[in-house]
Deep mutational scan, measured.
Amino acid sequence: ALRETGVIEKLLTSYGFIQCSERQARLFFHCSQYNGNLQDLKVGDDVEFEVSSDRRTGKPIAVKLVKIK
Rank of each mutant, 00 (worst) to 15 (best):
L2I: 07
L2F: 06
R3E: 01
R3I: 03
R3H: 04
R3L: 03
E4H: 06
E4C: 04
E4P: 02
E4G: 15
T5D: 02
T5R: 11
T5L: 06
V7I: 11
V7D: 01
V7T: 14
V7S: 10
I8Y: 01
I8T: 01
E9R: 10
E9H: 14
E9W: 04
E9N: 15
K10T: 07
K10H: 06
K10W: 03
L11K: 14
L12N: 15
L12T: 05
T13I: 11
T13D: 15
T13F: 03
T13K: 12
S14C: 04
S14M: 09
S14A: 09
S14P: 06
S14D: 09
S14E: 04
Y15C: 08
Y15T: 09
Y15Q: 07
Y15F: 12
Y15D: 05
I18L: 10
I18V: 08
I18S: 00
I18M: 02
I18E: 01
Q19F: 09
Q19Y: 03
Q19C: 12
C20W: 07
C20A: 15
S21L: 13
S21A: 10
S21V: 07
S21P: 07
E22Y: 03
E22L: 07
E22S: 10
R23K: 06
R23F: 05
R23S: 14
A25V: 10
A25Q: 15
A25W: 14
A25D: 03
R26I: 07
R26D: 04
L27Y: 14
L27M: 09
F28E: 13
F28L: 14
F28I: 06
F29G: 00
F29D: 00
F29A: 01
H30C: 05
H30W: 13
H30K: 05
H30V: 07
H30L: 05
H30G: 06
C31M: 14
C31D: 03
S32L: 08
S32E: 11
Q33Y: 07
Q33F: 13
Q33L: 04
Y34W: 12
Y34V: 13
G36T: 06
N37M: 12
N37Y: 08
N37R: 14
L38A: 12
L38C: 15
Q39P: 13
Q39A: 12
Q39C: 06
Q39I: 15
D40S: 09
D40Q: 10
D40H: 05
D40Y: 06
L41R: 00
L41K: 00
L41V: 12
L41A: 04
K42Q: 10
K42V: 09
V43L: 13
V43K: 07
G44Q: 06
G44N: 07
G44V: 00
D45Y: 01
D45H: 07
D46T: 13
D46S: 11
E48T: 08
F49Y: 15
F49N: 02
F49S: 00
F49Q: 00
E50S: 09
E50Q: 14
E50K: 06
E50N: 12
V51C: 13
S52E: 14
S53F: 13
D54H: 09
D54F: 07
R55A: 05
R55F: 07
R55E: 07
R56P: 11
T57L: 10
T57K: 14
T57F: 07
T57A: 12
G58V: 08
G58Q: 09
K59Y: 04
K59I: 06
P60N: 13
P60I: 14
P60F: 06
I61D: 02
I61T: 08
A62Q: 01
V63P: 01
V63F: 08
V63E: 11
K64C: 08
K64I: 02
K64M: 11
L65N: 02
L65F: 02
L65K: 01
L65M: 11
V66D: 08
V66A: 10
K67C: 14
K67S: 14
K67Q: 11
I68M: 03
I68R: 04
I68K: 06
I68S: 09
I68C: 04
K69R: 05
K69G: 14
K69I: 05
K69S: 13
